[in-house]
Design a protein around this nucleic acid. Structure first.
Lengths: 356, 356
DNA sequence: TGTTAGCACTCTATTAATTCGAGTGCTAAC
DNA sequence: GTTAGCACTCGAATTAATAGAGTGCTAACA
């Protein structure tokens, strides 16, 4: 069977209406809603076809139609290609964006706070649940190490990673250490380890360095361990979520078991990494930087009744983070995509400009 | 009216039964359940009295009785005083504790991770929601400052606070700075600011120091700002929660609006600070270190149908953190208190021992 | 005087029966 | 190819009927 223009128009009408109402939509509604000027009977015939093609279905015999995942998918893909076209004109971006701007300008260095605020704002604006991942630095290369004596028996190891992620690790000393040695150690580590990633440090270096340090060998390897730990702890993608309770606004998600599952995965966060993984540019979305996962497509089982929309922002050259929205399948995709575009645009600008 | 021994026994029976079943309990049940050998009619009379005294009530005319907040309060207070007595004997602590031990021994320095794990474990063990606050350092006194040049135009300010909380702040430089000046600045800041709290720094120092720094005045005040920001950001009590979804296990909390409210406050966390504030030793609990808030007593409106039990642990001499459990009023208070005792005991031991 | 048996009464929860209406599929006519 | 019309289906909402748990009260009993 062919999906001709009229069928498509009807399908879109069904989906649009369902997005608004959340109720199954019947033939009569469509007959009035569209400018096709067709009777409900005709619409019925067409809808039967659309059902056969797998785009819509009836929850029970005498109810209206509801879009299937495939139906949503078609709808979203269409929208994305339209967005693509629109982006070449690219005007009219300046509405809600301002709010975002203000929020960010104040303190660029506190990335974490900024991202948390962003997530909160996004959740509030859209009435869905938002999530945002810390930019994933480039394989966590080491940029800089600083060893500092905090008190006679505590050595503070400050580690700066590519992308200016800063981590600290405290080491308890067995015996005191004189300033001169400390200086030497500082120089040693910065010379040896600069630009190295976690993998490289572990195997290649540890023995090597401990050797050449003589009697300090033990301390050196302890410090290396601390550094590895610091890098490692930055390794797990950090994710912030906000607006979890928004799901209660959508009846189809707010029954006990579904809600519990959803909030559970939001709390655990581990499963979210999959959604926010560094998929760069995937299929479908070509170059809008936006991915849409509908229902089953997410692979996260607690989200099979949800849709997830994600977008990518650039923190530094080659260092990306992701923003995402989780909502019911009948979410307002257009609004969500716009909101995400705004946020990523904002973040791009804010993070990259001072870099020049 | 007098709360004689028999009435008390009946009240306890009612509460105990209600804790188990979650259903209103009737006179016949009690008549069989207790060893008082009284007929249901007698129990009925007594129950009418207990109701008049405000310890129990009927959800509707022909239902059994449910404990009021006052009833729970009596019950819990009794239990606490029993616990007090038992603590002097203080054996039999070694069951679930082991699990906690293992968890902690591995890495003492990563407090945050430890606490998160603890929260998770606690939530799993009890099937309620848990929360745990980072130890609140002593009015945030400054212990140590380290200025480091990360690259030619980025200055990293590392701030160590009393209690070894470490914070970082990145400053963008307008012009380059030579190593000598950097050293001077480091010495300057550590001499001037050591042991100072946020309040003291702001007013007394800023002008003073900027003055004596001459042409570096601007940079100095920028650094002071960064330090203030770092201290300030440590100021908000950090709280970790776990097991939010456990509330769905209790029907009286899991209807949409209640659950939504609860999870909202857990997500926001701000309101939790009130519950985990440094109340040291409060009334009632005398010296068990355990506080219990029942229903209205919490003042957090979304928790009016909950009970909250908190305990205090000592991170360092004079630096305390809190652990808490949130559950339905009919929670298993005994189990919860034991679990909390275990956790705080564990934390106390782990944190304090290496300090010696 | 405290305890108990008995009974009428109340109120909820459950189930069954009824009704309503939205929507469909099919047929026949245009 | 489109539409009007009609019989039919099925869920949702309303109402009615029933069962049962629990109470309060009264009267009798030890």
């Amino acid at each position: 069977m062919e999906l001709d223009a009229r069928k498509k128009k009807i399908l879109q009408a069904v989906i649009k209406n369902y997005l608004e109402t959340g109720e199954p939509v019947g033939s009569r509604t469509i007959s009035k809603y569209t400018d096709l000027n067709l009777s409900s009977a005709t619409i019925r015939n067409e809808m039967a076809d659309l059902e056969e093609m797998g785009y819509i279905f009836q929850p029970h015999t005498s109810a209206g139609r509801i879009p299937t995942d495939a139906g949503y998918r078609l709808y979203v893909d269409d929208m994305l290609s339209e967005k693509m076209a629109a982006m070449k004109i690219d005007v009219e971006q300046a509405e809600q964006e301002d709010e975002a701007h203000e929020e960010i300008d104040r303190r660029i260095d506190r990335i974490e706070e900024v991202l948390k605020d962003m997530a909160k704002m996004l959740a509030n604006n859209t009435n869905y649940t938002s999530m945002i991942s810390m930019p994933q630095p480039n394989k966590n290369r080491l940029k800089f190490v600083q060893l500092t004596l905090v008190d006679p028996e505590k050595l503070l190891t400050t580690v700066v990673l590519e992308g200016n992620i800063v981590k600290n690790e405290m080491i308890k000393l067995d015996k005191e250490i004189d300033p001169e040695t400390l200086l030497k150690l500082n120089i040693l580590f910065n010379n040896e380890l600069n630009g190295k990633s976690l993998r490289e440090i572990n195997f290649e270096m540890a023995a090597n360095m401990a050797d050449s340090a003589g009697e300090l060998g033990e301390l050196v390897s302890e410090i290396i361990n601390a550094i590895s730990a610091a890098i490692g702890s930055a390794d797990g993608i950090q994710i912030f979520t906000s607006g979890a309770t928004n799901i209660f606004k959508y009846p189809e998600l707010s029954d006990t078991s579904r809600a519990s599952g959803l909030i559970g995965t939001l709390e655990e966060k581990e499963l979210l990494t999959g959604l926010l993984a560094d998929t760069a540019e995937e299929d479908g979305a070509e170059n809008t930087g936006i991915q849409v996962y509908i229902g089953q497509e997410t692979s996260v089982s607690s989200m099979q009744d949800c849709a997830v929309v994600t977008a990518t922002y650039e923190f530094e050259k080659g260092v990306y983070g992701k923003v995402g929205i989780i909502g019911p399948k009948r979410m307002d995709y257009e609004k969500v995509m716009d909101a995400l575009k705004n946020v990523t645009g904002s973040l791009d600008k804010q993070f990259r400009k001072p870099e020049k």
